[in-house]
Structure formats: C-alpha cells, structure tokens
Design a protein around this nucleic acid. Structure first.
Length: 333
DNA sequence: TTAGATAGCGCG
DNA sequence: AAAGCGCGCTATCTAA
C-alpha cells in the first residue's frame, strides 16, 4: 500500500512522529493506534508514576516542589523538582494519577480557580461591548460566541458549533491563524478563515485590542500588564516575517497571561496577610488555581473568605468569578 | 563517558 | 516553510 506523506511535518532528520502527525496517520496502518497508546502510557509511567515516588521527602512523607519567581517571560511562576503544575488532568488515566495526591486524615483539599480569567481580561482590556455583555449576563461564553459568529439563536447552537467557538476563543488570545484553528477545531482551512473573519467582525473591540497591542509594542518596545509588569519585545520590528509575527503574538498574549499571573500573586499575598490560621496550608499554585489543605470543619469558613479575596483583587468591567471545589484527593476536586 | 540539543508531551 | 501563548521533564540522539 502506498502511504501518502503529504502534509506530514518534517523534522531536521526526517518525518515527524509527533502526536498531531500520528493522528493524521490513523487508519493508514494498524500500528499507528498502538504507537499512540504506547506514547500515552509511557509518558505517564516515566514522567509521573515512576518519578514522583522517588521524590517523596523522608521527613514529611510528601513531595515538595520549588516555585520559581524569576523565570517566565510573562510573570507566571514555574514549578520544578518536581513540576507540580503539569500533573495529568485531561484524561481518565491522568486523573487516576491525580488521585494519588491525598490529604491527611481529618483534612480536605480545597481548590479555587479563576473561571475563564484570560478571556474575561480580554473583554475588559478590549472594552468589547458584546463580550462584556456576555460575561455580565453570566452566559456560557463559548456558546454565546458560537451564536454570534454563526448568526443563530442561542438555542440553535449545536455542540459542534460550541466546540469550534471554544477553539476560536482560546486561539484569539494566542494570535492563532486559520491554519492553527483548522487543526484545533478540526475544520477546513477555508472554514477556519471564515470563522476568524466573522469573529473579528462580531467582536470589533477584540480586533482593536489586537491591533493596539501590536502598535504599542512597536512604538514603546514593550507591552505591559494592568499592574504595569513589562515585557520587552525587541523582535517586534524584525525584518524577518516569522520572527516579527511571533513577537506580535507575544504582544497580544502577554498582557492577558501576565495580568492573570499578577492577580493570583496578589491574591496569594492577601490570603497570607489576612488568614493567620496555622491550620491552613497553601499547597500549590497552578497558574489560575490555588490549592489548600484545611481541617474539614474549617473548610466552609475559609472557602468563602479566600474566594472573596481572589475575586476582589481587581475590579474589572466584567465579573471575576472563582470556582470552588473540595475533596479528599486531587482527582476529586 | 558526558554534556547539550532535539523531539515529544504533560499542564494552564 | 510555517502557520498558538507560557512552562519543565524524559528519552534519545549527537558531538566532543
């Protein structure tokens, strides 16, 4: 059988066998699925199941990460030795690994995460009327976007349409083009191009935000967050198209990702300052989420308090919403 | 034998 | 030719 290699990405030394490429090859040969399954399993075994138990501290019986404050370009923290910001969550098997993170008896794990924070910041910073209204109305933002760009009523939005809209909402924050959207939304290039056109026609404020950030970066040489954290982008004026486009995407994304990072850091400080109860342990920060360990009988008392602090770090033109969950292990929350 | 680069993939 | 932002870890290949 002749196998078409059209469209399969190349690396320096040959054909790419990355997950995206394997997905394109599904059905061409029975071995592809086996490779995909092996990839998923070996990743989980090597990176988590075998590695994490080795890092359990003898004294405490726990794993202790290090949070680095001065490594990322946007102001986020990073986590090393082990990285506890990339523990599996998206697949069923991944969640099984999360379940291995348990609290001490009598305690609960309390998780609070900012809901759609970067998209809400996009609404705020762009001032886009439609997007602000959607968030103010407490709408399902992806569904609302689907209705807008397809020109249909909310009740006529199909799950397919919502999936595509979700992909475009995320993609926009990253400066994704038609090619990338076609891939993540699993639609044709032409459909993707039309979607993006429609999106910016509907959300004119967002279009303006994108243009303004690029202009600002060109003029000043940097962009900044709402809290004035700067990121310099010297390549914004590069004559090499690819390099310049890359800097432009950073100019669009950094104020959003960076402001979200600023917000959660400020919340962490305020929580430290305002809650002096030694029974509460702030265990982890995973970019838009804080995880605490608290005695069962104090969960109710503090969950609301922490939520309030997180939601009121800054007043935006849209609501800042924090979702709360609790459980006996990380897989449950 | 080892250090560095590359490919791949886990998370938000 | 590449077409999506930000990270860190593992296995494997490459060069010294």
């Amino acid at each position: 059988m002749e196998i078409s290699t059209n469209g399969i990405k190349k690396t320096k030394t040959g054909f790419s066998t990355g997950a995206d490429e394997l997905e394109k090859m599904r059905g061409l040969h029975p071995i592809i699925v086996l490779i995909q399954e092996h990839r998923e399993l070996s990743k989980l075994v090597n990176t988590y199941i075998d590695a994490l138990p080795e890092l359990v501290n003898k004294e405490t019986g726990r794993v202790h990460t290090s949070f680095n404050q001065t490594v990322t370009a946007t102001g986020r923290l990073s986590s090393t030795n082990p990285n506890l910001q990339n523990i599996p969550a998206r697949t069923e098997m991944g969640k099984e690994i999360r379940k291995a993170f348990v609290v001490e008896k009598g305690n609960k794990l309390l998780s609070l995460d900012y809901s759609q924070i970067e998209l809400r910041l996009a609404a705020h910073m762009s001032g886009d009327k439609k997007m602000i209204k959607a968030f103010k109305d407490g709408a399902d933002i992806h569904k609302a976007t689907a209705a807008e760009i397809n020109g249909v009523n909310l009740e006529d939005v199909t799950s397919q349409m919502r999936r595509e809209a979700k992909a475009i909402n995320f993609g926009v924050l990253y400066g994704q083009g038609p090619h990338g959207l076609a891939r993540t939304a699993d639609i044709s290039y032409l459909e993707a191009r039309e979607f993006i056109d429609n999106y910016f026609t509907v959300y004119t404020g967002v279009q303006k935000y994108v243009d303004d950030k690029i202009k600002e970066a060109r003029k000043k040489g940097y962009v900044e967050t709402l809290f004035k954290r700067k990121r310099f982008l010297p390549e914004i004026n590069s004559s090499v198209v690819m390099v310049r486009k890359s800097a432009e995407r950073m100019a669009v994304n950094t104020p959003l990702q960076g402001t979200a990072a600023d917000m959660i850091k400020i919340a962490m400080i305020q929580i430290f300052e305002q809650i002096k109860d030694k029974d509460i342990k702030m265990l982890l920060q995973v970019h838009d989420e804080l995880i605490f360990e608290i005695p069962k009988n104090k969960v109710e008392k503090y969950a609301e308090k922490i939520k309030e602090i997180m939601e009121n770090v800054i007043k935006l033109r849209v609501p800042v919403v924090v979702d709360v969950a609790q459980g006996d292990n990380w897989g449950e929350v």
